[in-house]
Simulated assay, not measured.
Amino acid sequence: MFDTPPQAHQVIEERFAPNRVEMVAAALRPAIVFSEKRDDKLGGSRIGGTPDLPKVIEWPRRPVPQHIDEIAKRAGEPFDADLGRHLAAGLPYAFIAQISLAEAAGLGDVAKPLPDAGRLLFFYDLIAGPFDTGMQSAKVIWDRSPAEAIAHTSTPDSLVTAASAYRTMIDDTNRQYGIQPDTRPAGAPLPGTPYGGPARPMALKAVLQLPSFSSLEFQASGQLVTIYDQTMIGGVQAFSQAYDSVSQGAGPVSLLLGAPVPEQDDPRYDAVIVNDYKTQSLSRADWAKNRDTVMEKAKDWLLLLQIDVPGWMQDSGEGTIYFLIRDKDLQDRAFERVVAVYQQT
């Protein structure tokens, strides 16, 4: 990620041959990243913690699915039974992030697709979501309440209880296998669990990103794709290795808008498959048959938010959550149609 065009050009010039610089620079696109700050302002941007809600909006709960066993069996034995019990409980979603839309709008054109007032509140079921790509594993709320109508909320008791049981389970497992917990600085908050992460107030910042080679944006970049593919096998200075180093940076990142940074394939393919084909995945034969259609329809989908799970939990979690929305649904402010995709390597 780069703060300014000059900074981006400097890095690109240092890593690529002169005849490749403009081609790589042409792939730069805007995105919004998060940087931690100290003051947790009411209605401000935040990752983890709890949302700021008006009295008329309750902390959302995941609906109990009609076909619990079908979802639970995706986890495999012996985890299917625990997943089934979780789904039947209809617990509140874990709170993921709150985005101040006024703050985002202040960044200029990069935030133009978003509403310019209120807050976006992101919720996700991190227990079942990895096994249930789609709309039911996530909830995104556009709250337009005035600042005087909102207040910091408390975590629902059922999530507090679930988090406590989860920590006890982890402690018991560590004792069983003689694993010592990581040393944490004095005064540091408890690490998160799948039921919630520590509150981290955030400032939003506009940046430029080079799309990951797995993203749709990269695949549409023409000559860049050709040269990348031609140099997949090469030395340390190979074009593909240099591009990966610059585009992927230091590792997982949380993003607002921009191009997703996939851990596998572009998550927008999953959004198309679950939305249009009503299945979690396509067989190899069906993928070969429908690949071009899926890739074309994926162009209609946008990244709304990408959250790095270890960063959200402030612990050794795994994976990335992608909140995706079709361009038309974003224009219509139909946030109830967001699809959540989870990936891990």
Rank of each mutant, 00 (worst) to 15 (best):
W59Q: 02
Y93T: 01
A220T: 12
G118V: 11
E14R: 14
A104N: 09
A104C: 13
M313T: 08
R61F: 05
E70C: 09
Q237T: 10
D266M: 02
G43P: 09
E148C: 11
D276I: 02
V236K: 12
I150M: 00
I127E: 14
R184N: 05
H9T: 03
G178P: 15
A163N: 03
P267W: 00
R85V: 14
P146V: 09
T320V: 07
E336A: 01
D171P: 13
P6M: 01
F34A: 00
L190C: 03
A147S: 13
A75N: 14
P60E: 05
Y228W: 01
I227R: 07
M313I: 07
I150S: 00
M232S: 12
L324F: 06
P115Q: 06
D300K: 09
R337C: 01
I321T: 11
T133L: 08
D308N: 03
V341P: 07
P65G: 01
G108W: 02
V33Q: 00
P30L: 07
E58P: 12
V225L: 13
P267Q: 00
A165S: 15
L304Q: 13
Y243K: 08
P262F: 10
D69T: 15
Y322Q: 14
G129I: 02
P252E: 04
E22L: 15
S254T: 04
G84Q: 10
A89V: 03
A31W: 01
A259H: 03
D132H: 10
A203C: 11
P5F: 05
M202N: 05
L83S: 07
G90M: 12
H152D: 13
L305Q: 10
A259R: 05
W312C: 14
D143N: 04
L126D: 01
Q209E: 01
Q237I: 11
I307M: 13
P30E: 08
